[in-house]
Design a protein around this nucleic acid. Structure first.
Lengths: 210, 210
DNA sequence: GAATGTCCATACACATGTGTATGGAAACCG
DNA sequence: CGGTTTCCATACACATGTGTATGGACATTC
Protein backbone atom coordinates (compact mmCIF):
# COMPACT_ATOMS: atom_id res chain seq x y z
CA UNK A 1 0.00 0.00 0.00
CA UNK A 2 1.72 3.16 -1.25
CA UNK A 3 0.96 6.40 0.59
CA UNK A 4 0.75 9.57 -1.50
CA UNK A 5 -0.27 12.40 0.83
CA UNK A 6 -1.05 14.82 -2.01
CA UNK A 7 -1.56 12.45 -4.94
CA UNK A 8 -4.74 11.26 -6.64
CA UNK A 9 -5.29 8.36 -4.30
CA UNK A 10 -4.28 10.13 -1.14
CA UNK A 11 -5.52 8.96 2.20
CA UNK A 12 -9.11 9.66 3.20
CA UNK A 13 -10.22 12.29 5.70
CA UNK A 14 -13.47 13.06 7.50
CA UNK A 15 -14.32 15.36 4.61
CA UNK A 16 -14.37 12.53 2.10
CA UNK A 17 -16.78 10.52 4.20
CA UNK A 18 -18.98 13.56 4.71
CA UNK A 19 -19.04 14.37 1.00
CA UNK A 20 -19.97 10.81 0.11
CA UNK A 21 -22.62 10.77 2.83
CA UNK A 22 -24.12 14.07 1.62
CA UNK A 23 -24.46 12.71 -1.89
CA UNK A 24 -26.06 9.50 -0.72
CA UNK A 25 -28.34 11.52 1.54
CA UNK A 26 -29.51 13.61 -1.43
CA UNK A 27 -29.86 10.71 -3.84
CA UNK A 28 -31.38 8.05 -1.62
CA UNK A 29 -32.38 9.57 1.73
CA UNK A 30 -31.03 9.20 5.27
CA UNK A 31 -32.07 5.61 5.60
CA UNK A 32 -29.65 4.75 2.83
CA UNK A 33 -26.68 6.49 4.44
CA UNK A 34 -25.10 3.26 5.65
CA UNK A 35 -21.48 2.89 6.67
CA UNK A 36 -20.98 -0.26 4.58
CA UNK A 37 -22.24 1.38 1.42
CA UNK A 38 -20.16 4.50 1.87
CA UNK A 39 -17.12 2.28 2.37
CA UNK A 40 -17.91 0.48 -0.88
CA UNK A 41 -18.35 3.80 -2.64
CA UNK A 42 -15.00 5.04 -1.34
CA UNK A 43 -13.34 1.67 -2.00
CA UNK A 44 -12.15 1.15 1.55
CA UNK A 45 -13.39 -0.99 4.43
CA UNK A 46 -15.41 0.20 7.38
CA UNK A 47 -12.28 0.16 9.50
CA UNK A 48 -11.45 3.57 8.06
CA UNK A 49 -14.84 5.00 8.97
CA UNK A 50 -14.59 4.03 12.61
CA UNK A 51 -11.25 5.69 12.85
CA UNK A 52 -12.68 9.03 11.65
CA UNK A 53 -16.05 8.80 13.35
CA UNK A 54 -17.27 7.46 16.65
CA UNK A 55 -20.45 6.07 15.13
CA UNK A 56 -22.94 6.45 12.32
CA UNK A 57 -24.89 8.89 14.52
CA UNK A 58 -21.88 11.17 14.70
CA UNK A 59 -21.74 11.26 10.90
CA UNK A 60 -25.45 12.08 10.66
CA UNK A 61 -25.10 14.89 13.17
CA UNK A 62 -22.28 16.31 11.05
CA UNK A 63 -24.48 16.23 7.95
CA UNK A 64 -27.15 18.25 9.71
CA UNK A 65 -24.60 20.82 10.85
CA UNK A 66 -23.28 21.15 7.31
CA UNK A 67 -26.77 21.91 6.05
CA UNK A 68 -27.61 24.29 8.89
CA UNK A 69 -24.45 26.31 8.34
CA UNK A 70 -24.84 26.58 4.60
CA UNK A 71 -28.21 26.33 2.86
CA UNK A 72 -30.20 29.00 4.66
CA UNK A 73 -27.59 31.69 4.13
CA UNK A 74 -28.28 31.92 0.38
CA UNK A 75 -31.90 32.87 0.99
CA UNK A 76 -31.17 35.31 3.80
CA UNK A 77 -28.48 37.05 1.78
CA UNK A 78 -30.71 37.64 -1.24
CA UNK A 79 -33.83 38.57 0.71
CA UNK A 80 -32.15 41.06 3.01
CA UNK A 81 -30.30 42.80 0.23
CA UNK A 82 -32.08 46.08 -0.71
CA UNK A 83 -33.80 46.26 -4.12
CA UNK A 84 -35.17 49.10 -6.19
CA UNK A 85 -38.67 47.59 -6.55
CA UNK A 86 -40.81 44.58 -5.73
CA UNK A 87 -40.39 42.85 -9.09
CA UNK A 88 -36.61 42.89 -8.98
CA UNK A 89 -36.59 41.72 -5.37
CA UNK A 90 -38.83 38.73 -6.09
CA UNK A 91 -36.92 37.92 -9.28
CA UNK A 92 -33.80 37.83 -7.12
CA UNK A 93 -35.50 35.18 -4.98
CA UNK A 94 -36.61 33.32 -8.12
CA UNK A 95 -32.95 33.11 -9.08
CA UNK A 96 -32.40 30.87 -6.06
CA UNK A 97 -34.98 28.42 -7.34
CA UNK A 98 -33.46 28.01 -10.79
CA UNK A 99 -29.75 28.18 -10.03
CA UNK A 100 -28.43 25.12 -8.23
CA UNK A 101 -25.18 26.86 -7.48
CA UNK A 102 -27.08 29.24 -5.18
CA UNK A 103 -29.47 26.87 -3.47
CA UNK A 104 -29.48 23.08 -3.46
CA UNK A 105 -33.08 21.84 -3.37
CA UNK A 106 -31.98 18.23 -3.28
CA UNK A 107 -30.10 18.67 -0.04
CA UNK A 108 -32.79 20.85 1.45
CA UNK A 109 -35.42 18.26 0.68
CA UNK A 110 -33.40 15.31 1.84
CA UNK A 111 -32.99 17.03 5.21
CA UNK A 112 -36.69 17.85 5.27
CA UNK A 113 -37.58 14.22 4.67
CA UNK A 114 -35.23 13.17 7.43
CA UNK A 115 -36.89 15.72 9.71
CA UNK A 116 -40.12 13.78 9.55
CA UNK A 117 -38.56 11.01 11.61
CA UNK A 118 -36.27 12.89 13.97
CA UNK A 119 -37.34 15.60 16.37
CA UNK A 120 -33.83 17.04 16.52
CA UNK A 121 -33.77 17.48 12.76
CA UNK A 122 -37.36 18.66 12.76
CA UNK A 123 -36.52 21.48 15.16
CA UNK A 124 -33.51 22.53 13.10
CA UNK A 125 -35.59 22.67 9.93
CA UNK A 126 -38.29 24.66 11.65
CA UNK A 127 -35.83 27.30 12.80
CA UNK A 128 -34.46 27.55 9.27
CA UNK A 129 -37.93 27.88 7.74
CA UNK A 130 -38.83 30.62 10.20
CA UNK A 131 -35.77 32.64 9.35
CA UNK A 132 -36.34 32.22 5.62
CA UNK A 133 -39.98 33.28 5.69
CA UNK A 134 -39.19 36.28 7.89
CA UNK A 135 -36.48 37.38 5.49
CA UNK A 136 -38.78 37.12 2.47
CA UNK A 137 -41.53 38.94 4.35
CA UNK A 138 -39.08 41.84 4.66
CA UNK A 139 -39.26 42.24 0.88
CA UNK A 140 -43.01 42.78 0.95
CA UNK A 141 -42.73 44.98 4.02
CA UNK A 142 -40.32 47.28 2.21
CA UNK A 143 -42.77 47.33 -0.71
CA UNK A 144 -45.26 48.95 1.67
CA UNK A 145 -47.48 46.06 2.73
CA UNK A 146 -48.84 45.52 6.23
CA UNK A 147 -46.97 43.07 8.44
CA UNK A 148 -49.63 40.39 8.08
CA UNK A 149 -50.01 40.69 4.32
CA UNK A 150 -46.23 40.66 3.94
CA UNK A 151 -45.99 37.56 6.11
CA UNK A 152 -48.67 35.71 4.17
CA UNK A 153 -47.25 36.68 0.78
CA UNK A 154 -43.84 35.47 1.95
CA UNK A 155 -45.40 32.20 3.01
CA UNK A 156 -47.15 31.75 -0.31
CA UNK A 157 -43.94 32.44 -2.23
CA UNK A 158 -41.78 30.21 -0.05
CA UNK A 159 -44.26 27.40 0.63
CA UNK A 160 -45.15 27.26 -3.04
CA UNK A 161 -41.52 26.70 -3.93
CA UNK A 162 -41.05 24.00 -1.31
CA UNK A 163 -44.20 22.42 -2.69
CA UNK A 164 -42.75 22.59 -6.16
CA UNK A 165 -39.73 20.62 -4.97
CA UNK A 166 -42.00 18.21 -3.14
CA UNK A 167 -43.82 17.49 -6.38
CA UNK A 168 -40.48 16.65 -7.97
CA UNK A 169 -41.67 17.72 -11.42
CA UNK A 170 -38.29 17.61 -13.17
CA UNK A 171 -39.11 20.35 -15.68
CA UNK A 172 -36.54 21.94 -17.95
CA UNK A 173 -35.32 25.50 -17.49
CA UNK A 174 -37.28 26.52 -20.59
CA UNK A 175 -40.54 25.23 -19.11
CA UNK A 176 -39.87 26.96 -15.82
CA UNK A 177 -39.09 30.27 -17.50
CA UNK A 178 -42.31 30.22 -19.51
CA UNK A 179 -44.68 31.36 -16.79
CA UNK A 180 -42.65 34.03 -15.01
CA UNK A 181 -45.12 36.84 -15.65
CA UNK A 182 -48.26 35.14 -14.35
CA UNK A 183 -46.30 33.87 -11.34
CA UNK A 184 -45.18 37.39 -10.47
CA UNK A 185 -48.74 38.63 -10.97
CA UNK A 186 -50.00 35.87 -8.70
CA UNK A 187 -47.38 36.38 -5.99
CA UNK A 188 -47.21 40.17 -5.89
CA UNK A 189 -50.75 41.12 -6.82
CA UNK A 190 -49.49 43.68 -9.30
CA UNK A 191 -48.42 43.75 -12.92
CA UNK A 192 -44.65 43.09 -13.27
CA UNK A 193 -42.28 45.20 -15.39
CA UNK A 194 -41.89 43.12 -18.55
CA UNK A 195 -38.41 44.39 -19.36
CA UNK A 196 -37.10 43.09 -16.03
CA UNK A 197 -38.81 39.75 -16.61
CA UNK A 198 -37.31 39.49 -20.09
CA UNK A 199 -33.79 40.22 -18.92
CA UNK A 200 -34.13 37.68 -16.09
CA UNK A 201 -35.29 35.09 -18.55
CA UNK A 202 -32.43 35.80 -20.97
CA UNK A 203 -29.87 35.62 -18.23
CA UNK A 204 -30.80 32.21 -16.87
CA UNK A 205 -31.55 30.62 -20.23
CA UNK A 206 -28.07 31.63 -21.36
CA UNK A 207 -26.53 30.35 -18.13
CA UNK A 208 -28.25 27.02 -18.54
CA UNK A 209 -27.02 26.75 -22.12
CA UNK A 210 -23.42 26.81 -21.02
CA UNK B 1 -55.12 -21.57 19.92
CA UNK B 2 -58.85 -20.83 19.90
CA UNK B 3 -60.41 -19.67 16.63
CA UNK B 4 -63.19 -17.08 16.82
CA UNK B 5 -64.14 -16.18 13.26
CA UNK B 6 -66.19 -13.13 14.24
CA UNK B 7 -64.85 -12.35 17.68
CA UNK B 8 -62.38 -9.71 18.86
CA UNK B 9 -59.34 -11.79 18.04
CA UNK B 10 -60.63 -13.22 14.80
CA UNK B 11 -58.26 -14.47 12.19
CA UNK B 12 -56.29 -11.99 10.09
CA UNK B 13 -56.97 -11.14 6.46
CA UNK B 14 -55.12 -9.22 3.74
CA UNK B 15 -56.98 -6.13 4.89
CA UNK B 16 -55.44 -6.23 8.36
CA UNK B 17 -51.95 -6.37 6.94
CA UNK B 18 -52.72 -3.56 4.50
CA UNK B 19 -54.17 -1.37 7.25
CA UNK B 20 -51.14 -1.92 9.47
CA UNK B 21 -48.83 -1.27 6.54
CA UNK B 22 -50.63 1.96 5.63
CA UNK B 23 -50.24 3.27 9.15
CA UNK B 24 -46.56 2.40 9.28
CA UNK B 25 -46.13 3.95 5.86
CA UNK B 26 -47.65 7.22 7.08
CA UNK B 27 -45.84 7.27 10.40
CA UNK B 28 -42.39 6.07 9.41
CA UNK B 29 -42.11 5.93 5.62
CA UNK B 30 -41.84 3.08 3.14
CA UNK B 31 -38.43 2.00 4.30
CA UNK B 32 -39.96 1.12 7.64
CA UNK B 33 -42.71 -1.04 6.21
CA UNK B 34 -41.03 -4.31 7.11
CA UNK B 35 -42.75 -7.65 7.34
CA UNK B 36 -41.22 -8.49 10.71
CA UNK B 37 -42.39 -5.26 12.29
CA UNK B 38 -45.91 -5.59 10.93
CA UNK B 39 -46.02 -9.10 12.31
CA UNK B 40 -44.95 -7.80 15.73
CA UNK B 41 -47.58 -5.08 15.50
CA UNK B 42 -50.28 -7.62 14.68
CA UNK B 43 -48.94 -10.10 17.24
CA UNK B 44 -48.48 -12.93 14.77
CA UNK B 45 -45.44 -14.39 13.05
CA UNK B 46 -44.36 -13.76 9.48
CA UNK B 47 -45.78 -17.10 8.47
CA UNK B 48 -49.18 -15.43 8.30
CA UNK B 49 -47.91 -12.69 6.00
CA UNK B 50 -46.47 -15.06 3.45
CA UNK B 51 -49.71 -16.86 3.30
CA UNK B 52 -51.63 -13.68 2.36
CA UNK B 53 -48.94 -12.09 0.19
CA UNK B 54 -46.40 -13.40 -2.26
CA UNK B 55 -43.75 -10.96 -1.09
CA UNK B 56 -43.14 -7.58 0.48
CA UNK B 57 -43.24 -6.05 -3.01
CA UNK B 58 -46.76 -7.29 -3.50
CA UNK B 59 -47.82 -5.55 -0.29
CA UNK B 60 -46.19 -2.30 -1.39
CA UNK B 61 -47.91 -2.44 -4.78
CA UNK B 62 -51.21 -2.85 -2.96
CA UNK B 63 -50.52 0.24 -0.85
CA UNK B 64 -49.95 2.33 -3.96
CA UNK B 65 -53.19 1.09 -5.49
CA UNK B 66 -55.09 1.96 -2.34
CA UNK B 67 -53.78 5.52 -2.51
CA UNK B 68 -54.38 5.88 -6.23
CA UNK B 69 -57.97 4.76 -5.93
CA UNK B 70 -58.82 7.00 -3.01
CA UNK B 71 -56.94 10.21 -2.25
CA UNK B 72 -57.25 12.11 -5.53
CA UNK B 73 -61.02 11.72 -5.71
CA UNK B 74 -61.63 14.11 -2.81
CA UNK B 75 -59.93 16.96 -4.64
CA UNK B 76 -61.55 16.26 -7.99
CA UNK B 77 -65.00 16.04 -6.45
CA UNK B 78 -64.75 19.41 -4.71
CA UNK B 79 -63.02 21.25 -7.54
CA UNK B 80 -65.39 20.10 -10.27
CA UNK B 81 -68.50 20.89 -8.27
CA UNK B 82 -70.02 24.21 -9.46
CA UNK B 83 -69.90 27.20 -7.06
CA UNK B 84 -71.63 30.55 -6.97
CA UNK B 85 -68.39 32.58 -6.77
CA UNK B 86 -64.61 32.35 -6.55
CA UNK B 87 -64.39 32.79 -2.78
CA UNK B 88 -66.77 29.95 -2.00
CA UNK B 89 -65.06 27.67 -4.52
CA UNK B 90 -61.61 28.26 -3.03
CA UNK B 91 -62.95 27.94 0.51
CA UNK B 92 -64.34 24.58 -0.54
CA UNK B 93 -60.80 23.58 -1.51
CA UNK B 94 -59.46 24.97 1.77
CA UNK B 95 -61.82 22.61 3.56
CA UNK B 96 -59.80 19.72 2.17
CA UNK B 97 -56.66 21.06 3.80
CA UNK B 98 -58.13 21.38 7.27
CA UNK B 99 -60.38 18.35 7.43
CA UNK B 100 -58.51 15.06 7.68
CA UNK B 101 -61.66 13.12 6.99
CA UNK B 102 -61.70 14.56 3.47
CA UNK B 103 -58.04 14.41 2.55
CA UNK B 104 -55.21 12.62 4.32
CA UNK B 105 -52.02 14.67 3.96
CA UNK B 106 -49.99 12.09 5.86
CA UNK B 107 -50.74 9.36 3.36
CA UNK B 108 -50.31 11.70 0.43
CA UNK B 109 -46.93 12.78 1.65
CA UNK B 110 -45.73 9.34 2.55
CA UNK B 111 -46.47 8.25 -1.01
CA UNK B 112 -44.73 11.36 -2.35
CA UNK B 113 -41.63 10.57 -0.35
CA UNK B 114 -41.69 7.03 -1.60
CA UNK B 115 -41.99 8.38 -5.15
CA UNK B 116 -38.55 9.93 -4.88
CA UNK B 117 -36.99 6.49 -4.96
CA UNK B 118 -39.28 4.55 -7.28
CA UNK B 119 -40.06 5.50 -10.86
CA UNK B 120 -43.30 3.51 -10.80
CA UNK B 121 -44.56 5.45 -7.82
CA UNK B 122 -43.19 8.70 -9.23
CA UNK B 123 -45.24 8.27 -12.41
CA UNK B 124 -48.39 7.50 -10.44
CA UNK B 125 -47.93 10.62 -8.29
CA UNK B 126 -47.32 12.75 -11.34
CA UNK B 127 -50.54 11.63 -12.97
CA UNK B 128 -52.42 12.41 -9.77
CA UNK B 129 -50.85 15.88 -9.45
CA UNK B 130 -51.74 16.69 -13.06
CA UNK B 131 -55.36 15.78 -12.55
CA UNK B 132 -55.57 17.75 -9.32
CA UNK B 133 -54.06 20.93 -10.76
CA UNK B 134 -56.26 20.73 -13.86
CA UNK B 135 -59.33 20.39 -11.67
CA UNK B 136 -58.42 23.40 -9.54
CA UNK B 137 -57.60 25.43 -12.65
CA UNK B 138 -61.20 24.85 -13.68
CA UNK B 139 -62.29 26.96 -10.70
CA UNK B 140 -60.33 29.97 -11.90
CA UNK B 141 -61.42 29.37 -15.49
CA UNK B 142 -65.05 29.53 -14.44
CA UNK B 143 -64.25 32.75 -12.58
CA UNK B 144 -63.32 34.27 -15.95
CA UNK B 145 -59.52 34.00 -16.02
CA UNK B 146 -57.46 33.11 -19.08
CA UNK B 147 -56.28 29.52 -19.36
CA UNK B 148 -52.71 30.37 -18.42
CA UNK B 149 -53.59 32.57 -15.45
CA UNK B 150 -56.02 29.93 -14.22
CA UNK B 151 -53.37 27.24 -14.55
CA UNK B 152 -50.76 29.26 -12.67
CA UNK B 153 -53.17 30.25 -9.90
CA UNK B 154 -54.14 26.62 -9.52
CA UNK B 155 -50.49 25.70 -9.26
CA UNK B 156 -49.84 28.36 -6.64
CA UNK B 157 -52.82 27.23 -4.57
CA UNK B 158 -52.00 23.53 -4.86
CA UNK B 159 -48.21 23.71 -4.69
CA UNK B 160 -48.40 26.04 -1.74
CA UNK B 161 -50.48 23.50 0.14
CA UNK B 162 -48.14 20.63 -0.71
CA UNK B 163 -45.32 22.88 0.47
CA UNK B 164 -47.20 23.52 3.68
CA UNK B 165 -47.35 19.79 4.31
CA UNK B 166 -43.69 19.45 3.35
CA UNK B 167 -42.78 21.98 6.03
CA UNK B 168 -44.63 19.84 8.56
CA UNK B 169 -45.50 22.84 10.71
CA UNK B 170 -47.97 21.11 13.03
CA UNK B 171 -50.06 24.20 13.69
CA UNK B 172 -53.38 24.12 15.49
CA UNK B 173 -56.68 24.69 13.70
CA UNK B 174 -56.93 28.09 15.40
CA UNK B 175 -53.59 29.20 13.98
CA UNK B 176 -54.50 27.97 10.54
CA UNK B 177 -57.84 29.77 10.59
CA UNK B 178 -56.27 33.06 11.56
CA UNK B 179 -54.99 34.12 8.14
CA UNK B 180 -57.82 33.04 5.86
CA UNK B 181 -58.51 36.50 4.49
CA UNK B 182 -54.97 37.43 3.45
CA UNK B 183 -54.54 33.95 1.95
CA UNK B 184 -57.65 34.39 -0.18
CA UNK B 185 -56.46 37.86 -1.17
CA UNK B 186 -53.10 36.40 -2.12
CA UNK B 187 -54.46 33.43 -4.03
CA UNK B 188 -57.35 35.06 -5.85
CA UNK B 189 -56.05 38.59 -6.36
CA UNK B 190 -59.34 40.03 -5.16
CA UNK B 191 -60.93 40.98 -1.85
CA UNK B 192 -62.87 38.02 -0.36
CA UNK B 193 -66.40 38.26 1.00
CA UNK B 194 -65.87 38.48 4.76
CA UNK B 195 -69.18 36.89 5.69
CA UNK B 196 -68.27 33.74 3.77
CA UNK B 197 -64.86 33.67 5.43
CA UNK B 198 -66.41 34.06 8.87
CA UNK B 199 -68.90 31.25 8.35
CA UNK B 200 -66.14 28.97 7.07
CA UNK B 201 -64.07 29.74 10.13
CA UNK B 202 -66.95 29.10 12.52
CA UNK B 203 -67.78 25.83 10.86
CA UNK B 204 -64.35 24.26 11.11
CA UNK B 205 -63.49 25.62 14.54
CA UNK B 206 -66.69 24.08 15.82
CA UNK B 207 -65.97 20.78 14.05
CA UNK B 208 -62.49 20.66 15.57
CA UNK B 209 -63.91 21.30 19.03
CA UNK B 210 -65.95 18.12 18.92
C1' DG C 1 -66.35 -37.86 11.16
C1' DA C 2 -62.77 -38.10 7.68
C1' DA C 3 -61.00 -35.26 4.14
C1' DT C 4 -59.96 -30.76 2.81
C1' DG C 5 -58.95 -25.96 3.24
C1' DT C 6 -57.54 -21.93 6.08
C1' DC C 7 -54.37 -19.58 8.91
C1' DC C 8 -50.30 -19.47 11.49
C1' DA C 9 -45.92 -21.22 14.28
C1' DT C 10 -41.40 -22.93 13.88
C1' DA C 11 -37.03 -23.70 11.97
C1' DC C 12 -33.64 -22.81 8.44
C1' DA C 13 -30.75 -20.34 5.01
C1' DC C 14 -29.20 -16.18 3.64
C1' DA C 15 -28.34 -11.00 3.09
C1' DT C 16 -27.22 -6.62 4.96
C1' DG C 17 -26.14 -3.68 8.52
C1' DT C 18 -23.51 -1.82 13.12
C1' DG C 19 -19.80 -1.76 16.24
C1' DT C 20 -15.31 -3.71 18.48
C1' DA C 21 -10.74 -5.63 18.78
C1' DT C 22 -6.47 -6.18 16.84
C1' DG C 23 -2.75 -5.88 14.01
C1' DG C 24 -0.06 -4.12 10.12
C1' DA C 25 1.88 -0.95 6.58
C1' DA C 26 3.17 3.58 5.30
C1' DA C 27 4.45 8.34 6.90
C1' DC C 28 6.47 11.31 10.13
C1' DC C 29 9.58 12.83 13.62
C1' DG C 30 13.36 12.91 16.60
C1' DC D 1 16.85 4.53 11.76
C1' DG D 2 13.89 3.32 15.61
C1' DG D 3 9.67 4.79 17.67
C1' DT D 4 5.35 6.92 17.13
C1' DT D 5 1.38 8.33 14.67
C1' DT D 6 -1.90 7.86 11.01
C1' DC D 7 -4.92 5.25 8.36
C1' DC D 8 -6.96 1.04 7.09
C1' DA D 9 -7.75 -4.37 6.61
C1' DT D 10 -9.41 -8.36 8.84
C1' DA D 11 -12.02 -11.08 11.87
C1' DC D 12 -15.67 -11.50 15.20
C1' DA D 13 -20.14 -10.84 17.62
C1' DC D 14 -24.53 -9.41 17.14
C1' DA D 15 -29.01 -7.33 15.29
C1' DT D 16 -32.50 -7.01 11.88
C1' DG D 17 -34.53 -8.17 7.73
C1' DT D 18 -36.43 -11.45 3.62
C1' DG D 19 -38.05 -15.67 1.89
C1' DT D 20 -38.90 -21.02 2.07
C1' DA D 21 -40.28 -25.44 3.88
C1' DT D 22 -43.00 -27.94 6.85
C1' DG D 23 -46.23 -29.19 10.00
C1' DG D 24 -50.02 -28.38 13.28
C1' DA D 25 -54.54 -26.53 14.96
C1' DC D 26 -58.95 -25.21 13.90
C1' DA D 27 -63.00 -24.79 10.62
C1' DT D 28 -65.73 -26.30 6.78
C1' DT D 29 -67.81 -29.52 3.82
C1' DC D 30 -69.58 -33.62 2.08
Amino acid sequence: MTRKPKGQDRTLGRGDWIAAALQTLIEEGVDSVKVVRLADRLSVTRGSFYWHFKSRDELLATLLEAWEAKNTQAILGRAEHPHRDLTSAVLDIFALWVDRALFDPGLDFAIREWARRSTTVHDAVRRADDRRVKAIAGIYRRAGMTAIDAFIRARILYFMQIGYYALDLRETIEERMRYLTPYLRGFNGEEPDESQVASFRRRYLKQAAQ
